[in-house]
Lab assay of single mutants.
Amino acid sequence: DTFTFTLDGIEVRLHGASEELIKTIEELLKRDIRWEELEKWIREWEK
């Protein structure tokens, strides 16, 4: 599955994202998160 969203005018596609990761990103997007914050968060998630 591919999860697609737009952040700061950039279309982002995550391939093979888990349901948990998708739900977490959706929550972060509701908080009007900035790209830099999401990028940092995703790097931490990957560890």
Rank of each mutant, 00 (worst) to 15 (best):
D1P: 12
D1T: 07
T2A: 06
T2W: 11
T2S: 07
T2E: 15
T2M: 07
T2G: 10
T2L: 10
F3L: 04
F3N: 00
T4W: 13
T4V: 15
T6L: 14
T6D: 14
T6K: 02
L7N: 02
L7W: 13
L7H: 08
D8P: 01
D8L: 04
D8R: 00
D8G: 05
G9M: 03
G9Q: 04
G9A: 03
G9T: 02
G9P: 00
G9R: 00
I10G: 01
I10C: 13
I10P: 00
I10V: 14
I10M: 09
I10L: 06
E11Y: 03
E11W: 02
E11M: 05
E11I: 09
E11G: 01
V12Y: 15
V12F: 09
R13I: 15
R13S: 15
R13H: 15
R13E: 15
R13D: 09
R13T: 15
L14Y: 02
L14V: 14
L14F: 06
L14K: 00
H15C: 08
H15S: 13
H15A: 06
G16L: 06
G16V: 06
G16P: 12
G16I: 05
A17I: 11
A17S: 03
A17M: 07
S18T: 14
S18G: 07
E20A: 12
E20Q: 12
E20I: 09
L21F: 08
L21V: 13
L21T: 13
L21A: 10
L21S: 05
I22L: 05
I22K: 07
I22P: 00
I22V: 10
K23R: 13
K23D: 06
K23S: 10
K23H: 12
T24D: 10
T24M: 14
T24P: 01
T24N: 15
I25H: 00
I25S: 00
I25G: 00
I25L: 08
I25N: 00
I25M: 03
E26V: 13
E26M: 14
E26Q: 14
E26P: 01
E27A: 11
E27S: 09
E27G: 09
E27L: 11
L28I: 07
L28W: 07
L28R: 04
L28N: 02
L28Q: 05
L28G: 05
L28K: 06
L28H: 06
L29I: 13
L29E: 00
L29C: 02
L29S: 02
K30R: 13
K30S: 12
K30Y: 04
K30E: 10
K30P: 01
K30W: 05
R31L: 12
R31S: 15
R31T: 15
R31K: 14
D32G: 13
D32S: 10
D32Y: 06
D32M: 06
I33E: 02
I33T: 06
I33V: 10
I33S: 04
I33W: 06
I33Q: 03
I33R: 03
R34G: 10
R34H: 12
R34F: 07
R34I: 08
R34N: 10
R34T: 14
W35T: 02
W35R: 03
W35H: 04
W35D: 01
W35I: 11
E36F: 08
E36P: 14
E36H: 13
E36S: 13
E36Q: 12
E36N: 11
E37P: 01
E37K: 04
E37A: 09
L38N: 00
E39D: 10
E39R: 08
E39M: 15
K40I: 11
K40D: 07
W41Q: 10
W41I: 15
W41A: 14
I42W: 06
I42Y: 09
I42D: 01
R43A: 09
R43M: 11
R43S: 13
E44K: 05
E44N: 11
E44R: 05
E44C: 08
E46D: 12
E46I: 14
E46Y: 15
K47M: 12
K47E: 13
K47S: 12
K47F: 09
